[in-house]
Each structure stands twice: as structure tokens, then as C-alpha cells.
Amino acid sequence: MRSTIAPRISLIIYLLALMLPVYWLINLSLRTNADIMSGMALWPHHPTLEKYRAIFADPTWVHAFGVSLSYVAINTVISVSVALPAAYAFNRYRFVGDKHLFFWLFTNLMAPSAVFALPFFNLFYAVGLFDTVWAVALAHCLFNVPLAVWILEGFVGGVPREIDETAAIDGYSFPRFFLRLFLPLIANGIGVTAFFCFMFSWVEQLLATTLTSSNALPFAAVMTRSYSASGMDWSLLAAAGVLTMVPGAVVIWFVRNHIAKGFALGRV
């Protein structure tokens, strides 16, 4: 590398531009509505946590935050656990219809939520799951299960097949081999997969709002509803928006060292 100054500066400019809308949201969330409407200010002159306090004091918001986190967690656990054996099978064996099946799974990854919203509504209504966290968790399996299979298949491929054979010779039964030897070997892969499942379930809102009405309304939906109800409480809206970024930021911090590798190996 001859010169590293120009790339550094470009990178810093890009990252600052990326953070500008986020910063603006934080800025507004720390000001009162009267303050916001009275004119532009590049930083909050009289910062206040009033709106955050209001959100934490309101059971609707707190409940909705719990709802969002629980369907995301349920979905991640289901997706990763059903995808593990499938990823192993796709990588290690050939069987009738394997290629077609893999392609078909892959197409579900691309399924447009708008196409599925209405049929899902009918389906979950019919089986009595409408307005529960399970409806959203299962609906998000539509794209997260294929995604998990796809990423994990890449990680399974990174483990040499000799390990399977040695374990079989050493007298390991298959379940014991899979759980005790194989899973620890792809632990990073499982982490990265869980991260992506978390991400896509956390950000998806069309299905999440279509399949819930009051009991299991996700956080971001309460947000949309609150601004139609109370006129424009910009400051409250901004504070809620800032809060929705927190779980994502926390999760990504944990996988930061694996994320690039996950992208390369897992071909997300």
C-alpha cells in the first residue's frame, strides 16, 4: 500500500455520512417538541431524557419491546435448530432431488412479504395463532430457515469430511458425534447464522404488523400507531426509534470479529 491517507479519509467521510441520520434521530430524541419546532439546532442545547422516561414508564411500550424480542428469539432458535441437520445433509450427501430442493429453499429466501401477508393472515387466523408471538416467529421462518440452511451449509463445508469418518471409526454414534464433536466445530458458524436470523426477523415489519393486532404488537408497530394517534410527537418517535437500534447494536458488537468471515464462508 503506497498511501493510506486517501482511503482513510474517504472511509471516515463515508462512515460519518452513514451516521448522520442516526445522529439526527438521537439529537431530536433529546429535545422537547417545543424545542424542535422552534428551529434547527445541530446539537441539543437543553438535552432531556424525558421521552425515554415516558417510554419506559408506559406498559404498552415495554410490553411491545418484550414481544419483539421474544418472537425474534423463538424464530432464531427454531430456524437454527431445524437448519443444522439439513445443512449437514446438503453438504455431506447426495440424494434424490437434492439440487431441486436446495434451489426451492433458496427461492423462499426471496419470497416477497407483500405476497404472503394476506394468506398468512388467513392461515394463522384459522389455526388460532393470530396475534401471538408464535404467528410472527413462524411466519419469519419463511425466509430465515432457508437463510440458515444456506449459511450453515457453507460452514459445514469448512469442516473436513475425515473428521466424520474418524469419529465413526472411533465408535461414536451419529447423534453423539453430531452434538458433541461436530457442533462445537461450527460454533462460529452457528453464531453468525443466529446473528443473521436475528437481524432479518428484527427488521421485518410488514408480516409482523399484519399478523398482530393488540396483544403481540411489535415495538416498531406501536411506534407507527402512536404517531397517527397523537398527532406528531416527533421527539417521542425519535426516542423510540433510537431504542429500536439498541438490540441490533449490542448483537453486532458480539459478532464483529466473525461477521466478515461469516459473509465469506457462509455466502450470505
Binding site: L15, L18, M19, P21, V22, W24, L25, M199, W202, V203, E204, Q205, L206, F219, A220, A221, M223, T224, Y227, L237, G241, T244, M245, P247, G248, A249, V251, I252, I259
Partner: peptide, 16 residues
């Protein structure tokens, strides 16, 4: 920092 925008719920991106 680069990945953060992808982890924001889509309607929050809209609101922002």
C-alpha cells in the same frame, strides 16, 4: 458502524 443501518427495523428507517 458500517453494518448498523441493516439492523434497524425497516419502518424505523422510514421514520428516521
Amino acid at each position: 458502524v458500517t453494518a448498523l443501518p441493516m439492523l434497524i427495523p425497516w419502518n424505523v428507517v422510514g421514520t428516521m
